[in-house]
């Protein structure tokens, strides 16, 4: 039994030593000719570029308005006595 275990351990360690580091290399320069590319499909975008103008927010402040002269009427009474 012991001898079987020994053989197993030996084979495992040998297989681990046997693996090599793999180095991947990518292309350093690649040229795309866009004019040469062909895309299959139909054109659905509008022909010219257009931007829809945003509706500008209008701020209206309440400007001063005099509705009556009631306070003047009261003021004049106070001016008398």
């Amino acid at each position: 039994m012991k001898s079987i275990l020994m053989i197993l351990v030996l084979t495992c360690s040998l297989s681990a030593f046997g693996k090599e580091n793999v180095v991947y290399k990518y292309k350093q320069y690649e040229k795309f000719d866009l004019g040469d590319l062909e895309i299959k499909g139909s054109i659905i975008a509008p022909g010219d570029l257009s931007v829809k103008e945003r509706r500008r927010k209008i701020f209206k402040r309440k400007l001063y308005r005099r509705k009556n002269f009631d306070e003047f009427i009261q003021r004049d009474i106070k001016f008398i006595r």
């Binding site: 509705k67 009556n68 002269f69 009631d70 003047f72 009427i73 004049d76 009474i77 008398i80």
Partner: peptide, 20 residues
């Protein structure tokens, strides 16, 4: 002067009322 001012005030108030 007191009565003159009262007279004028009353008259002006009539104009103020039309404005209102």
């Amino acid at each position: 002067r007191y009565f003159t001012i009262i007279k004028e005030d009353c008259f002006i108030n009539r104009a103020r009322m039309r404005f209102k």
